[in-house]
Design a protein around this nucleic acid. Structure first.
Length: 423
RNA sequence: GGAGGAGUGGCCGAGUGGCUUAAGGCGGCGGUCUUGAAAACCGUUGAACGAAAGUUCCGUGGGUUCAAAUCCUACCUCCUCCGCCA
């Protein structure tokens, strides 16, 4: 959510900044609603002050017969207060609904652009493997090795699911453990294991609701949602809290499965592990002081890149333009891994700063040393990494001509010393 | 699923209709004293909105009343017991 005061005082600037995003942002009605709300608030507060004062007087008067006139007058005032309160709530709800649907203002350094075509490639890492044979796509590699089974998964659940077998299943598990160990031991994150089902307030806090309910799996009878990313439960850990400055930055990592309806992507990436309804991800989440968030985004990105470097997977980093960043993000770097089987780079991590956008929605604050007033902190998160996509990247990058797949050095201890996966 | 009980400030805890402007304690902060510290004593110590006056917040939402932490109601959470169960 944007700061209502900022919006009030910098309406044109905000509107202009938001117009660089993809999709129309409708701010019409804000100024009217905001003014209505403030007028009603002022009016109703004056009445309440009157009511409180006279009621106290009535309370102090032993002989109520002396204040019968006041009592009946307060009856009217009370009715009036109720009426205005209802009206106020209606206006405030409308205003809130409008604000909840407004995306974050892009970071000043976020490149301006209309679509993903305007994203900026900022660095490339690693050598693409020189394969002297025609590389296979991971779904063929996986099925030929008997470690991935999309056919049986569709029997179990439908399209966009996968059953892993043997070394495939173990490789997924190995990746999760490797990533968690790296982030906790080397990068100083605290491991968390949050719920995979969350309530509406949590989904609203990080920005999935109210706008993107169609993308979420919802449970029947309980009003709970399956998490689309660990960002949701982990960020909401500190919802409605005031943290101490000395505890910042607070860095968490979490492994969770993620569940997405992929409502708008029919026909896209229908084969393989790229776009599944359920996938595993190791996520990193940070809570920082406002002045630290830019630097923390850099280190978050580096932490994610480190995973690919250690796995020896070539990648590039892309600075997303204003037309491509997500609803809650102010700035996002995507890491795209090279996939020889597809001959292209594909997103494997997304590292974003939300500044105070999520913190305001979720009311996550901190108090500076010696300060009286708490202030909003900044939240950031990034994949570290999407596990399924990492697995498929390994299959495609480490494939051999005979159909086997070598295990990256750092994973061998996690694979019981296994050197390669073969039929 | 059934039967009870409970939700009050950072924490503990009093308060069952009207100076509650939420007692008291702990913790925190400041001070006195001290070579320094401890102890003792004194003071101070929640959040949101507002330029201010002021308003709101005692799990959450409704309701009763001139007046609600307090009464009614629905819901949520936690605890105890029973049943079921990984």
């Amino acid at each position: 959510m944007l700061d209502i005061k900022y919006l009030r005082e910098n309406f044109a600037t905000a509107e202009k900044a938001l117009s660089t995003r993809a999709g129309k942002v409708d701010l019409s009605g804000f100024q009217t609603l905001d003014q209505q709300r403030r007028e009603l608030l002022n009016e109703v507060e004056l009445l309440k002050a009157e009511k409180n004062k006279v009621s106290a007087l009535i309370g102090r008067t032993k002989d109520k017969s002396q204040v019968l006139g006041e009592i009946s007058r307060m009856k009217d005032v009370s009715a009036q207060v109720k009426l205005l309160d209802d009206k106020l709530r209606e206006v405030a709800d409308q205003l809130n609904e409008l604000l909840m649907g407004v995306p974050n203002i892009p970071h000043e350094q976020c490149p301006v652009g209309a679509s993903e075509d305007d994203n900026i490639e900022i660095r490339i890492w690693g050598e693409k493997p020189a394969l002297d044979f025609t590389p296979k796509a991971h779904w063929d590699i996986g099925e030929d090795l008997g470690i991935l089974d999309f056919t049986r998964a569709s029997k179990l659940s439908g399209a966009r699911f996968c059953v892993y077998f043997g070394a495939g299943a173990r490789l997924e598990r190995a990746l999760i453990n490797f990533m968690l160990d790296l982030h906790t031991v080397e990068h100083g994150y605290t491991e968390t294991l949050p719920p995979f089902l969350v309530n509406r307030a949590s989904m609203t806090g990080t920005g999935q609701l109210p706008k993107f309910e169609d993308d979420l799996f919802h449970t029947e009878g309980m009003d709970l949602f399956l998490i689309p990313t660990a960002e949701v439960p982990v960020t909401n850990i500190h919802r409605d809290e005031i943290l101490a400055e000395k505890d910042l930055p607070l860095c968490y990592t979490a492994y969770t499965p993620c569940f997405r309806k992929e409502a708008g992507s029919h026909g896209k990436d229908t084969r393989g592990l790229i776009r599944q309804h359920q996938f595993n991800k190791v996520e990193m989440v940070k809570f920082t002081r406002p002045e630290d968030s830019d630097a923390e985004l850099e280190s978050l990105l580096q932490n994610a890149e480190k995973v690919l470097q250690l796995l020896g997977l070539p990648y590039r980093v892309v600075d997303l333009c204003t037309g491509d960043i997500g609803f809650s993000a102010a700035r996002t770097f995507d890491i795209e891994v090279w996939l020889p089987g597809q001959g292209c780079y594909r997103e494997i991590s997304s590292c974003s700063t939300f500044r105070d956008f999520q913190a305001r929605r979720a009311s996550i604050r901190f108090r500076r040393e010696g300060a009286k007033k708490p202030e909003l902190l900044h939240t950031l998160n990034g994949s570290g990494l999407a596990v399924g996509r990492t697995l498929l990247a390994i299959l495609e990058n480490y494939q051999q001509e005979d159909g086997s797949v070598l295990i990256p050095e750092v994973l061998k201890p996690y694979m019981g010393g296994l050197e390669k996966i073969e039929r």
